[in-house]
Nucleic acid binder design. Structure first.
Length: 891
RNA sequence: GCACGGGUAGCUCAGUGGUAGAGCGGCUGUCUUACACACAGUUGGUCAGGGGUUCAAAUCCCUUCCCGUGUACCA
């Protein structure tokens, strides 16, 4: 037994159990089980993704929930999978193409071949993250792994599209969208991040066509002046009332454009006059429509100027053109001023470049079941944790806009719409297409291609990736599975995708499945670095979880992270915390090793349990309760902390240290056995409670301590949680309370004794003899344990002990404890030590006396509080007297 | 601008009316027989500032400042 290594080595153990669990089908969910169901669907990571700390946090929580649910006797489905991630994956393969010699683009390859290339890439390199999740110990049902483009999921996406189309909620229209000029696709509003930018505000003179003056107009985008079709002023603005209806000369590609009135213009902002450029600004577009203005588009899809009438700018990049246009305007003498200006610019979440408002033909969705989705969260049918996210959610739903679901990509679900060949061009240029056009027979929408494909042309666009992910909670399940496991129990995800994913899944659940997709949503915190910055590749501040697993073990990583992950705020990641997780695993391992070194417990008919035994079992019972409470509230840090402090502080530092002598040779068998029984009970319960968070080491020790053998070899993973009720079942509350009081007094006395030794600079291992003058009769067992805990040869009770003057002493719950020493140390040092403590105590006494002298306090505070204060004061006064006599004895 | 979250020991964080806590770090001892990934002791705090309610405030209320997040935008 003793040949076990001194330090825990997680790597081998973790791999061993991951393999065994999977071989034995421990993660597999049985839809026909009669047990109550518990289910989670994984937030599918991008198939291109690699594991980062956010995933670790998120999936550890899911694993904890799943494993705990299994212990509670539930049939658990944790359904894994990956997301095809349209833009990211396509970009990945395009990057490969660009590296070839000569470099190629997807257009060189052609759509069909390109999509095949992406599939090949996916088969070869995709899903690394799945392997990584396995290394973390995730107990997903890997036999049910799904992919958002697999041949079961994909038809569901098309079906959803077709149904919504037929319902009139999906339409195709020519509208202003967020255009990414690098990726050359439209994006949804959610994919645009408004970012403060240091810009310039240019004020430009627009001359009145009749020569009667000029109008000053401010803009941040002078490169679009050629697309101005009007200048607008507020109708209530007296400064400009007389100008409405006149015309000004557009400064670039000079022509007359009207001055119009529109309430959208803020009187107080800038000059009070606004250039109207409907093709390149969302609100200008609205103003343009309202006033029936022309739309002049002067930008290409990739953000270059397209304006042959302005040869100096034509073909230039939009930002180069901005500078150049100002040069031209200045040369014309039309530049009034340039100011620094901070405004918000929409940045593409995907490519990090400013998006361009662009008029284009796209597919849009009017969200279904918005009302049901809002109510479900408002009335608590779906519970958000932390609760404050419900407000964010509600706010978004209130101002919800139609969702632009088409993307100009090739990798993804192609829009299941076909146009009749001879009319295809005309149809695709129509300003709006909807269900009525389908009724006319010119367009076909369906899951399967039309029966006569040669007569049809399919829409070129693909769907937004989130248009498939929003079906994830049910489109991943077959009917049998859905009957058992839908709606799912918990969803664990980051608050950053509350709109992208969570809200949309709720709507989809109500629209396509049997209602809500999940009952609880747990929003994790965001993992930041120690400076509080988000972890990102570009900052290089994101540790590699696999590296952390290699150095600290998956269990160490999980435990360390959970211990610092608060609910409701962000986590600042500190590798030290992970090291603590590893240290904890080592502590656990060694405590188990200590037990293994003792051999089997005998079969004693009357094991003699003492106060410390009962005390630790009572604490174990409390731990059960605390853990259950923490789970009920989804407080994973509380759960982890409770496990940590019970084991390290209560079990190892107090209990084990107090019982070590029971295990030595020659110890009383009845006590020895009581101790071994207690240790076994504690470890058995504890490992079960710990298993959800540190599954590998818990399972390993469960096996090596022989708990599995006693249970027919069944792994801990499949073992139900031991019942807390059975603990201390034979004892009444009074006996328990009495034993616990004795144990508490013992531990407190041991602390005092150790303090006393330390104060006199005696080494921890210095064998001294204490003498206790007890206030009540004390048994020898307790005295012996006190001596052991205090690192002393003895701590015998002697009611008649008369301490020589100057004997160091301290007050313990058992009575005065003396440390008789010969040749007492430095008198000066001793005097100053006592004086210091006296000073401190006197201060406390003054404070306490003032409090008790306050009539309001005594009258109005609860009696218990007042009593407590009195007890405290009397204790201090006793100690003060003691110190004073010690001081006197020194002279 | 609006909304939400946060500011407690050197660091990471607990603590929602009753003596300010944990772990790590620092310092001092100890290789005491499960564990030096350890043990024992110890040092650290005008609980962001100000005001209020209360016998009693880190905790409740008001206010200011700082950090973070979301959201809306005016060129």
């Amino acid at each position: 037994m003793t040949e076990l290594p001194k330090a825990y080595e997680p790597t081998v153990v973790e791999e061993k159990w991951q393999t065994r669990w999977m071989q034995e089908g421990c993660f597999h969910a049985d839809p026909q089980s009669t047990k109550p169901a518990y289910s989670i669907v994984i937030p599918p990571p991008n198939v291109t993704g690699v594991l980062h700390m956010g995933h670790v946090l998120n999936n550890t929580i899911q694993d904890i929930l799943a494993r705990r649910a299994r212990q509670e006797g539930k049939e658990v489905l944790w359904l894994p999978g990956t997301d095809h991630a349209g833009i990211a994956t396509q970009a990945r393969v395009e990057k490969e193409l660009a590296k070839e010699t000569p470099p190629r683009t997807r257009y060189d390859v052609g759509r069909e071949d390109f999509v095949n290339m992406v599939w090949e890439w996916k088969e070869k390199h995709g899903g690394i993250i799945i392997k990584q999740l396995k290394k973390l110990g995730c107990s997903c049902d890997w036999e049910r792994e799904r992919f958002t483009m697999d041949n079961i999921f994909a038809p569901e996406v098309a079906r959803a599209f077709a149904e919504l189309f037929k319902q009139g909620l999906i339409y195709r229209g020519r509208r202003m969208v967020n255009w990414d000029p690098v990726l050359l696709t439209a994006l949804s509003d959610e994919e645009v991040i408004m970012t403060p930018a240091k810009s310039k505000l240019y004020t430009i003179r627009y001359k009145l066509a009749d020569g009667s003056g000029q109008l000053l107009v401010s803009t941040t985008r002078p490169e679009t002046i050629m697309a101005d079709v009007a200048v607008a002023v507020n109708p209530k603005d007296p400064r400009f009332a007389h100008l409405i209806g006149k015309t000004v000369i557009r400064p670039l590609v000079e022509t007359e454009i009207p001055i119009i009135a529109d309430e959208h213009v803020e009187i107080d902002f800038g000059t009070g006059a606004l250039k109207i450029t409907p093709a390149h600004d969302r609100t200008d577009f609205e103003v343009g429509m309202k006033n029936h203005l022309e739309i002049i588009d002067v930008l290409t899809a990739d953000g270059h100027i397209n304006c042959p009438d302005c040869p100096e700018l034509h073909g230039l990049d939009r930002f180069v053109a901005r500078e150049k246009s100002i040069e031209i305007i200045e040369a014309k003498g039309l530049l009034e001023k340039v100011e620094d200006y901070e405004n918000n610019v929409g940045i593409s979440q995907r490519s990090d470049v400013p998006i361009e408002p662009r008029l284009s033909m796209q597919w849009f969705l009017k969200y279904p079941c918005v009302k049901e989705a809002a109510e479900a969260v408002a009335n608590g049918d779906i519970v958000f944790r932390p609760a404050h996210w419900a407000k964010t959610y509600a706010h978004w739903l209130e101002g919800i806009q139609d969702w632009c679901i088409s993307r100009q990509l090739w990798w993804g679900h192609r829009i299941p719409v076909w146009y009749r060949k001879e009319k295809a061009t005309a149809l695709q240029e129509a300003t709006k297409l909807d269900v009525e056009d389908a009724a006319a027979g010119d367009i076909y929408v369906g899951v399967e291609p039309p029966a006569d494909p040669e007569n049809w042309v399919q829409d070129e666009d693909a769907l937004d990736t989130w248009f498939s992910s929003w079906l994830w909670p049910f489109a991943t399940m077959d009917d049998e599975c859905r009957a058992k496991f839908y709606p799912t129990s918990d969803l664990v995800t980051g608050p950053d995708i509350i709109f992208f994913w969570v809200a949309r899944m709720i709507m989809a659940g109500y629209r396509f499945a049997d209602g809500k997709p999940f009952s609880n949503v747990f929003f994790t915190s965001i993992v930041r670095d120690l400076q509080g910055r988000k972890m990102s590749k570009s900052l290089g501040n994101s540790p590699d979880p696999l590296d952390l697993i290699a150095r600290y073990g998956a269990d160490g990583l999980r435990f360390g992270l959970m211990r610092i992950a608060p609910t409701g705020t962000d986590v600042k990641f500190d590798e030290k915390q992970i090291e603590e997780g590893k240290n904890f695993a080592n502590k656990l391992y060694n405590a188990a090793r200590f037990r293994m070194m003792q051999g089997e417990a005998g079969t004693d008919p009357a094991p003699r349990f003492t106060a410390v035994h009962i005390d630790i079992l009572a604490k174990l019972k409390e731990l059960h309760t605390n853990v259950a409470d923490a789970f009920a509230k989804y407080e994973f840090n509380t759960y982890t902390q409770a496990l940590y402090s019970f084991f390290w502080n209560e079990y190892c530092s107090l209990f084990l240290e107090a019982v070590k002598n029971d295990l030595r040779d020659g110890a009383d068998t009845a006590v020895r056995n009581a101790t071994l029984y207690t240790i076994d009970i504690v470890l058995r319960h504890y490992l079960a409670l710990l298993a959800p968070i540190m599954p590998h080491i818990a399972e390993e020790l469960w096996q090596s301590l022989g708990f599995a053998t006693r249970n027919g070899g069944q792994p801990l993973m499949l073992t139900e949680l031991p019942k807390a009720d059975a603990l201390l079942a034979g004892l009444d509350d009074i006996a328990i309370a009495k034993a616990r009081a004795t144990a508490t007094a013992l531990y407190e006395s041991a602390n005092r004794a150790r303090n006393l030794k330390a104060e006199y600079n005696l080494a921890t291992n210095r064998k001294v003899r204490f003498i206790l003058k007890p206030v009540a009769p004390l048994d020898t067992d307790t005295c012996a344990r006190l001596a052991l805990l205090a690192g002393a040869l003895s701590a015998d009770a002697d009611a008649s002990f008369e301490a020589p003057k100057g004997t160091p002493t301290t007050l313990t719950p058992f009575g005065e404890l003396f440390l008789p020493l010969e040749g007492l140390v430095d008198v000066d040092a001793e005097r100053s030590r006592i004086s210091k403590e006296l000073e401190k105590i006197t201060k406390e006494i003054t404070k306490s006396q003032a409090k008790l002298g306050n009539a309001s306090f005594v009258d109005r505070a609860p009696a218990a509080v007042v009593d407590q204060e009195r007890a405290r004061l009397s204790e201090w006064e006793n100690r003060k007297a003691q110190l004073e006599s010690m001081l006197a004895a020194l002279v």
